[in-house]
Design a protein around this nucleic acid. Structure first.
Lengths: 191, 210
DNA sequence: ACGTTACTTTTTAAAGC
DNA sequence: GCTTTAAAAAGTAACGT
């Protein structure tokens, strides 16, 4: 088993799509949203920010939402509950309870050791590394579907996972590949 | 039937027109950048393969041609920055970069095949700066030491080469300004300065108080 | 030559062009 | 494909002073 004892992952952002099961009149909704913006010409939804659960919401007339910036699933549930209460205040009726789908989770993390990315890119299959355009190695994990950005410091960013478990699984797969190609063998390198 | 024959003709006509346009655009770029014939041929080969695999969908012919030129330069170790190519292309650098990464992924152009040694950039930039063989050798020495000490991962190769040439030019008494090396390397003076500071500090280089 | 802000990469949904 | 939103990583860029 790959040693993940020194590996750390921290949630940075959660994106969820939500269906409120109600039709919304955005011109009325915008009146009750303090920090909001609505320019149907440039974007079809209301862009609204909450301070309490610190999140940003995209509100559409279909009653569907996109909630971003959350650090926990609870933040999303609280934000949706808060919006539902606000909408009830202006007479919106809901056919049923909101349906929340977690679509994307972004984690930052640390593998706990440094890497020579030239060496990594030379032996790690299916990775991309273009230091002239971006300083990290881009590694795509098929199952669970996720993408990991690996930096020379050993810090990582994992995005695309739909749960913390999936993110850990993706990181484990990257570590297994690194180990398989001898990229975790105590600090060596050449060119 | 006749209609099927006609549509087949029409399709091949469109394909031929697109290919002709692509190759004329390729000609324009390679001529303007004074690229060797084998680079043009490799870029054309990459383009035809990209078309054959349907990798052009959703991308402009121009961005893919520019991406193929860049990829051919990298494969054949002909140092050229993406900036030089985007300068004479109608599409922006970001779009060319995307097409480049897309064809690289799909034509199995691995980082290994695309790797161009910093040394190759040293000669290209040194040519443009009129620097001697002695300065070039010193710059390569600095870059190799920087690599050994793990100072190059994730950094812009062009920025590193520019800083190494700047330092080498000072050490060998053929000084070029940060502005001059930055210009040929297509990076900002700030980047040259940042790499310069780190190299001098971490490699313990004593530069003349010029 | 600073500092600050902003952009590069990745992910993901929403409705409409 | 684009538009908008959030967030991190580390590097480079573009402002202003």
């Amino acid at each position: 088993m790959v040693d993940t004892s020194k590996v750390k992952l921290r949630i940075e952002n959660i994106v969820a799509s939500v269906d409120l099961f109600a039709q919304l009149d955005l011109e009325k909704v915008i009146e009750i949203c303090p920090n909001s913006k609505y320019n149907p010409e440039e974007f079809p939804g209301i862009i609204c920010r909450f301070d309490d659960p610190k999140v940003a919401l995209l509100i559409f007339s279909s009653g569907k939402l996109v909630v971003t910036g959350a650090k926990s699933v609870e933040d999303i549930e609280r934000a949706v509950g808060k919006l539902v209460q606000m909408l009830k205040g202006i007479g919106v009726s809901f056919k049923r309870a909101p349906l929340i789908d977690i679509q994307n989770m972004v984690f930052s993390g640390d593998i706990g050791r440094e890497f020579n990315l030239d060496t990594v890119a030379l032996s790690l299959p299916n990775c991309e590394y273009e230091p002239e355009q971006f300083p990290g190695v881009i590694y795509r994990v098929k199952e669970p579907r996720a993408v990991i950005l690996l930096f020379s410091s050993g810090k990582i960013v994992c995005s695309g996972a739909k749960s913390e478990h999936d993110a850990w699984e993706a990181v484990r797969k990257l570590l297994r590949e690194l180990e398989k190609y001898g990229l975790l063998d105590e600090e060596e390198e050449e060119l | 039937r006749l209609r099927r024959w006609q549509s087949r003709l029409r399709v091949s006509d469109a394909a031929e027109r697109n290919l002709a346009f692509a190759l004329s655009e390729l000609d324009r770029i390679t001529a303007q950048l004074k690229l060797p014939k084998h680079v043009e041929e490799e870029a054309a080969r990459l383009y035809r393969e990209a078309v054959r695999r349907g990798l052009i969908r959703g991308r402009s012919i121009e961005s893919v041609i520019a991406a193929c030129v860049y990829a051919a330069c990298r494969l054949l170790k002909v140092p050229r920055t993406l900036d030089e190519i985007s300068d004479i292309s109608r599409v922006d650098k970001k779009e060319i970069g995307r097409s480049y990464r897309f064809i690289a992924r799909n034509l199995n152009l691995t980082p290994k095949k695309l790797f161009v040694k910093p040394t190759d950039y040293v000669n290209k930039f040194a040519d443009e700066l009129g620097l001697s063989e002695k300065v070039r050798r010193k710059a390569v020495e600095i870059l190799e030491e920087a690599y050994r000490k793990g100072l190059t991962s994730g950094k812009s190769p062009a920025g590193l080469v520019a800083a190494a040439l700047y330092i080498a030019s000072l050490l060998e008494g053929e000084k070029r300004t940060q502005r001059e090396v930055a210009e040929v390397a297509r990076v900002t003076e700030v980047t040259v300065r940042n790499r310069y500071k780190e190299l001098v500090e971490k490699l313990g280089i004593k530069v003349p108080i010029a």
